[in-house]
Simulated assay, not measured.
Amino acid sequence: MPLDLPKPVAAYFTADRDRGDSDAIVRCFTEDAVVKDEGRTHVGRSAIAAWKAEASTKYNYTSEPIALENAGDKTIVTSHLVGDFPGSPIDLRYIFAFDGDRIASLEIKV
């Protein structure tokens, strides 16, 4: 059964799957959003665009959300990633916080 993801989360995973449109990822975030991934912090839409562009050119992967939970003001999505990166396959936790209908913060953890 498909997960009933919040709109900004569904838009994020759809844009991540369709890597040809990097602007689609950026539109999911607020202007001053923060992303934490692989020990690095990316602040603002331009930094987030650079982060996604680097990851998309560095690795080939698929990401499939498999679980959803709410923890206070956070939405946590577990996604199964398979690709040509070290440690593949792996399940990652995407911890989202929102500002309206956009992502204000995203932290990706093992």
Rank of each mutant, 00 (worst) to 15 (best):
P89R: 05
C28I: 09
G20I: 05
I103F: 03
D91L: 05
K36V: 15
S63L: 06
P2H: 01
F29S: 08
D18P: 03
Y61L: 11
D91W: 07
P65R: 09
F29I: 07
E64Q: 13
E69Q: 13
H42Q: 09
D16S: 14
I48K: 08
C28H: 02
P6K: 03
W51A: 00
A55W: 11
L68A: 01
F96V: 05
V34A: 08
A97V: 14
A55K: 11
P65S: 04
A11T: 00
K109W: 08
E31C: 01
P86L: 06
I90D: 09
A53P: 01
G44F: 07
I76N: 00
P65K: 07
P6C: 04
L81C: 07
G83N: 04
I25V: 13
A47T: 05
D4K: 09
L5I: 05
I66C: 12
T57A: 09
G87D: 12
R19T: 01
T57N: 13
A67C: 13
I48E: 02
R93Y: 06
L92Q: 08
L68D: 07
F29E: 02
E38L: 15
A104G: 04
I76V: 15
D99P: 03
G100Q: 04
A104H: 06
D32C: 03
S56T: 08
L106Y: 01
M1W: 02
D18K: 09
V34S: 12
G39M: 08
L106W: 11
E64L: 11
G100L: 02
T41S: 03
F13Y: 02
A53N: 11
R27S: 10
K36N: 15
A71H: 13
V43D: 08
L92P: 07
P89C: 01
H80E: 14
E38G: 14
R93S: 06
G72E: 02
A49E: 15
F29R: 01
V26K: 01
F13T: 00
Y59C: 12
P8L: 01
K74P: 07
W51Y: 09
R27T: 03
D37A: 08
L92R: 12
I108W: 04
N70H: 12
A15G: 00
V43K: 14
D16L: 14
G20D: 09
R102K: 13
A47Y: 05
D101V: 00
A71Q: 15
R27D: 10
A53Q: 12
E54F: 13
G20L: 10
A24L: 10
S22Y: 07
R93M: 11
S22D: 15
S46V: 15
D101L: 03
D21V: 01
P89T: 10
P89W: 10
E38D: 15
P8F: 08
L5E: 01
A67E: 12
Y12L: 06
L3W: 00
D84V: 02
D99C: 10
I76D: 07
L81H: 07
A49F: 10
G44C: 09
V110S: 15
D84N: 14
I66K: 10
Y59A: 05
D16C: 11
D16K: 09
I66A: 05
A55C: 14
A10P: 02
R27W: 00
G39F: 01
S63N: 08
T78P: 09
A11R: 07
